[in-house]
C-alpha cells in the first residue's frame, strides 16, 4: 500500500516536473513529499515511544495502588517501613520480614555467584585455549537459559534434601532460604561470568604483554593488571546480579516457604517480597481489597530497589571505565 502510494506521488511530481521544465526550462530539485514514508516513520516513532508508556504505566499503576494502600486507616508509611510483622489478617503491615528474607536469599546467592562467576570469567578469558572457550562458554550459557521454575523444582527436590542430609532434618526445614539462595546463585553464575568476561576481554593485549615483559606470571598478570583494568565492568556485573537476585520470584516461591518470618536463620522458612506477591496474587484475589493494594506497595519497593541497582551499575561503568585506544 505504501509502495503504491509513494509510486503514485513520484509519478505525479515527475509529470509536474516535466511540465515545469518545458515552461521554465529549469530542473525541479526540491525534495518530493512522500506521505508513505511519513506514515512509516510515524509508526516507527510510535514503536520507540511505546517503551516510555510501559515505564509510565508501571510507575502509575504501582504508585496509584500503593497510594490506596497507604491512605487506608490501618496503614502508615512508617509502620510499613519499620514494622517487623506482616500479617494482613490482623492489620499488621511491616515490610521488614519480607525484605529481610529477600536480603538473606540474595546474600546467599551472591556468596555462590560472585566468586564462582568471577573465577570462571578469569579462567575463560585468561587461561582457556580458544577451543576450550568455544565449548565451555555456550554450555555455561545453557544454565542462563533454563527457566527459573525449573530451578525452583531443583532447589526443592535436590538442594533441600542435600542440605538436610548434611545438617540434619531437624535443623533444615523442608522449605528454607539456604536451598533457594544456593540454587539462585547457580542461576545467576552465568550472568556474572559472561558480563565479567566481556569486561576482561576488553582489556587490551598490550597491557598483558607489558606485564609479561616485566616478568609477571600469568596469575599476577590476571589479578594485578587485567582484573583492576576491567574492574568497572566486573562491579557492574555484580550489581546487575544483585538486582536479578532481588527480583527473582519462582525459586523462592517454590523453595523458600510460604509465610513471612522475621529471621536470619538460613535454614528456616521465610517468604520474600516476590514470593509473597506471587502467593497472594495466585489465590482468588478480590480487587480493591487491602491484600490487593498491599502487593502493589511491595511491588513499588521492589521496583525502586532494582531500578536504583540497575541505574547505579550503568553509571558505574560510564564513570569509571578505562578507555583504551
Amino acid at each position: 500500500m505504501d509502495d503504491k502510494a509513494s509510486a503514485g506521488v513520484s509519478m505525479d511530481s515527475r509529470v509536474a516536473g516535466v511540465r515545469r521544465e518545458t515552461a521554465e526550462t529549469t530542473l525541479n530539485l526540491r525534495k518530493k513529499s512522500r506521505p508513505g514514508e511519513n506514515v512509516i516513520q510515524g509508526f516507527l516513532l510510535f514503536c520507540g515511544v511505546l517503551s516510555m508508556f510501559t515505564t509510565i504505566g508501571i510507575v502509575l499503576v504501582l504508585g496509584n495502588e500503593s497510594l490506596h494502600f497507604f491512605t487506608n486507616d490501618n496503614v502508615s508509611i512508617t509502620e510499613f517501613l519499620t514494622g517487623t510483622q506482616w500479617s494482613p489478617q490482623i492489620g499488621q503491615f511491616g515490610i521488614l520480614p519480607l525484605l529481610l528474607a529477600t536480603l538473606v536469599t540474595s546474600f546467599i546467592a551472591m556468596l555462590v555467584a560472585l566468586p564462582l562467576g568471577l573465577g570462571a570469567a578469569i579462567y575463560l578469558s585468561e587461561y582457556a585455549s580458544p577451543r576450550a572457550r568455544k565449548i565451555l562458554k555456550p554450555v555455561l550459557e545453557v544454565l542462563a537459559g533454563v527457566p527459573t521454575i525449573v530451578y525452583g523444582y531443583f532447589a526443592l527436590t535436590f538442594m533441600t534434601p542435600l542440605l538436610q542430609s548434611i545438617f540434619g532434618k531437624d535443623t533444615v526445614n523442608i522449605y528454607n532460604m539456604a536451598a533457594a539462595g544456593l540454587v539462585m546463585g547457580i542461576m545467576i553464575l552465568p550472568l556474572v561470568c559472561s558480563m565479567s568476561e566481556d569486561a576482561l576481554s576488553a582489556v587490551p593485549r598490550s597491557l598483558r604483554e607489558g606485564a609479561y615483559g616485566l616478568g609477571a606470571t600469568r596469575l599476577e598478570t590476571a589479578t594485578k593488571i587485567v582484573v583492576p583494568a576491567g574492574l568497572s565492568g566486573i562491579i557492574a556485573a555484580f550489581v546487575v546480579a544483585i538486582s536479578r537476585a532481588v527480583g527473582e520470584t519462582m525459586i523462592v516461591a517454590v523453595a523458600a516457604g510460604a509465610g513471612p518470618n522475621f529471621t536470619l536463620n538460613p535454614f528456616a522458612s521465610a517468604e520474600t517480597m516476590t514470593g509473597h506477591i506471587a502467593r497472594i496474587s495466585g489465590g482468588d484475589l478480590s480487587y480493591d481489597s487491602i491484600d490487593y493494594n498491599s502487593i502493589f506497595a511491595i511491588g513499588m519497593l521492589l521496583f525502586l530497589l532494582t531500578l536504583v541497582l540497575n541505574m547505579g551499575s550503568r553509571r558505574l561503568v560510564r564513570r569509571f571505565r578505562e578507555v583504551y585506544e
Partner: peptide, 10 residues
C-alpha cells in the same frame, strides 16, 4: 532490568 513479576502486576 525490571523484575518479571512487576510486569505481571502492570
Amino acid at each position: 532490568g525490571v523484575p518479571s513479576i512487576i510486569y505481571g502486576m502492570l
